[in-house]
Nucleic acid binder design. Structure first.
Length: 371
DNA sequence: TCTGGGGTCCTAGGACCC
DNA sequence: TCTGGGGTCCTAGGACCC
């Protein structure tokens, strides 16, 4: 989906169309309604806090404002941009609508988060381009939103080429196009090469995917290890055998929060304790609502200097009970130095099972006695 | 005026078991 | 009286993605 969160907001506030708009920050900055019924929006320059940009419209991107940028930095670049808080309920609603629309045409869909999917079109009778246009039309009718589609021999190439003609684009790619269309692109365009690997490749004078394809397998294994080296070697050649996975189970459920100001374990003890308990309750609520229990309880904390650490603990029996989670998370917290200010606290439950299956996994007395 | 929140996957060492 | 070869689970950290 193109600039998904921002585009959903524009459905609601069409008067902002064509303007730089930034989604991010906490739920302050809710638009107010003036006496004449018009909306009063906040400007980015009004923002103060530790948030990051979640999404920006293409007009804001033209001013240098991109996802994951600190809001204060964004405000310097585009002080007059309009600022809206994220409304995840609305985005989830439109996410369901667009996925449903796609499934009505091509049911083999793999979820990749709220605004992205892979579709296996291998067995679809329609020709690629008309099919892409057909899907885009269905998405537009269901949501009023535009998307960009890449059709390629595998997920790796489809992902790259879905990005080549944004927004509202269709890109078709075959293996014959690899050298002309893919090799000139920077290595960071490959899904799986992030900031670290990108830096490391750059230091080795490898900047484009074509330059990556020129490296020997030995060279890549030597610098990136067996698994990642081999993956890089194949990725540069457009090779990817991963199937489109239409069904999956969650592995973990977590909640975390960055404080408005850094808190100290001693002087802010009661405030921290409140937040900690609330996080446990929210995770428990998420588990219960989704019908899962988990037996590994973990915490995450981040110090004021941004060092981050985790601790976890596996219980004998999976739970979705806030008190059990709170107790286990408390045990984890005891194993961590608390002499420095904290900026973030998080609670995670993993090793999940469906609650409906969970009772079966607790062995009966008879099973315990069996040799 | 640095740097969100929700995830997945991988690596690696150690405990423990057969 | 100097050291096996599998395997699984647990824990911690890190890269990466949306």
């Amino acid at each position: 989906m193109d600039a998904f969160y921002a585009s959903v907001e524009l459905l609601r506030y069409p008067e902002l169309r064509g303007q730089p708009v930034v989604i991010g920050g906490r739920s302050l900055h809710q638009p107010a309604t003036a006496a004449d019924g018009s909306r009063l929006f906040a400007r980015l320059r009004d923002y103060a806090g530790r948030g990051v940009v979640t999404t920006s419209t293409y007009e804001a991107r033209a001013l240098g404002v991109f996802s994951a940028m600190g809001m204060m930095k964004a405000a310097k670049l585009a002080p007059d941009a309009w600022l809206l808080p994220a409304d995840f309920d609305a985005y989830r609603h439109y996410s369901r609508l667009f996925k449903q629309a796609v499934r009505s045409i091509a049911p083999q869909v793999e979820d990749r988060g709220i605004d992205e999917i892979y579709i296996d079109l291998s067995d679809h009778p329609e020709e690629s381009r008309p099919l892409a246009l057909h899907i885009k039309q269905a998405v537009r009718e269901a949501t009023g939103l535009s998307c960009s589609i890449g059709i390629a021999p595998n997920k790796l190439l489809a992902k790259i080429c879905s990005d080549l003609d944004k927004p509202d684009g269709v890109t078709l790619l075959t293996m014959e196009d690899l050298q002309t269309r893919i090799w000139p692109l920077p290595v960071r365009k490959i899904n799986g090469i992030g900031p670290k690997a990108g830096e490391k490749l750059g230091a080795l004078d490898v900047r484009t995917i074509g330059e990556l394809a020129q490296q020997t397998l030995e060279f890549l294994l030597q610098h990136f290890g067996r698994s990642y080296g081999e993956w890089l070697f194949n990725a540069a050649r457009g090779l990817d055998e991963r199937p489109v996975v239409t069904q999956s189970e969650p592995k973990s459920i977590s909640r975390e929060t960055t404080f408005e100001r850094d808190l100290h374990a001693k002087s802010d003890r009661s405030r921290l304790s409140e937040i900690f308990t609330a996080l446990c309750e929210r995770v428990a609520g998420d588990l219960q609502r989704k019908g899962y229990v988990g037996k590994t309880i973990g915490i995450k904390l981040r110090y004021d200097d941004f060092r981050t650490l985790t601790r976890d603990l596996t219980l004998p029996v999976a739970t979705d009970n806030p008190l059990d989670i709170r107790r286990a998370a408390g045990e984890c917290l005891k194993r961590v130095p608390l002499d420095q200010r904290l900026r973030l606290l998080g609670v995670k439950v993993s090793a999940l099972q469906r609650k409906s299956d969970a009772s079966e996994s607790v062995p009966s007395q008879a099973e315990l006695l069996l040799d």
